[in-house]
Design a protein around this nucleic acid. Structure first.
Lengths: 81, 69, 69, 81
DNA sequence: TTGGGCTGACGTCAGCCATT
DNA sequence: AATGGCTGACGTCAGCCCAA
């Protein structure tokens, strides 16, 4: 074969793992790249749901910042967009 | 060749082998340490990708189920 | 205590320490080897999961795009 | 904290990795489990598309077996169901 | 076939740190 | 502060395996 799946030298093991990681990262990026369109639709749905959910707090106290900074990134994007 | 020179030569040969193997052992340990760090970093990367893919699948599934209504 | 007994006691103390550290080193190397194998196996598992998730995402994406028509 | 993210002992590292792997595998299985329904819809869509595609060959020659055995498993399931 | 490069495993020393 | 348990790093021996 051109290359053994389990080499003996550590250098070859590192090179092999870096190669696999590069391929997987490329495939991962390509799949997640075409998902921006779906993300846009998902954003709209979440934005509507959030607006409806947070409408009860209008006129009340300020939102808890300590909870916001620990929330997923979608919420940050919904605030800073 | 005198027996004295032969013995000294053998001693130098042995010391040279020990010296080479000494440096080789250091480099080998360094490479092994780098390999382990490579594995740990790879695990972390795959972990994040796995988490992102699962969340993306959930979102896409929900989006598909809502489109069915 | 005689100086002879003190010296012997120190020698035994040292040998005991060396013996304990010897066995501890063996167990430590064993655990480290097991840890590295654990990392490699974890990498393989995550690799398969990511591949499956990516294929599933592709299929679901195509299915969603065809439903839009 | 209750547990450090990077312990010194190898036993704790192994236990931590096993715990994470168990959680991730559980989440993975749960996501892939609920996808059987989507798979079924996918099957129906492909089955319809295949039936419509092969309707032109009705009354013609037999299908190429050498192409079928190299096709994805979904096609085999469509035949042997 | 064989010498030399790498690596596995050992024992030893030094150091960290949780436990006492 | 002091002790003992684990681990990092070193040098050495033995062995594998591939290019001379």
């Amino acid at each position: 074969l051109a290359m053994a799946a389990n080499p003996r030298k550590f250098s070859e093991k590192i090179a092999l793992h870096n190669q696999k990681q590069a391929e997987e990262t490329a495939a991962f990026d390509e799949v997640m790249k075409d998902l921006s369109l779906t993300r846009a639709l998902h954003f709209k749905a979440q934005q509507l749901q959030l607006a409806q959910s947070r409408s009860n707090f209008y006129g009340g106290s300020l939102p808890n910042v300590n909870q916001i900074i620990n929330a997923p990134l979608e919420f940050h994007a919904a605030f800073y967009s | 060749p005198s027996p004295q020179g032969v013995a000294e030569e053998a001693t130098r040969k042995r010391e040279m082998r020990l010296l080479k193997n000494r440096e080789a052992a250091r480099e080998c340990r360094r490479k092994k340490k780098e390999y382990v760090k490579c594995l740990e970093n790879r695990v972390a990367v795959l972990e994040n990708q796995n988490k992102t893919l699962i969340e993306e699948l959930k979102a896409l599934k929900d989006l598909y189920c809502r489109k069915a209504d």
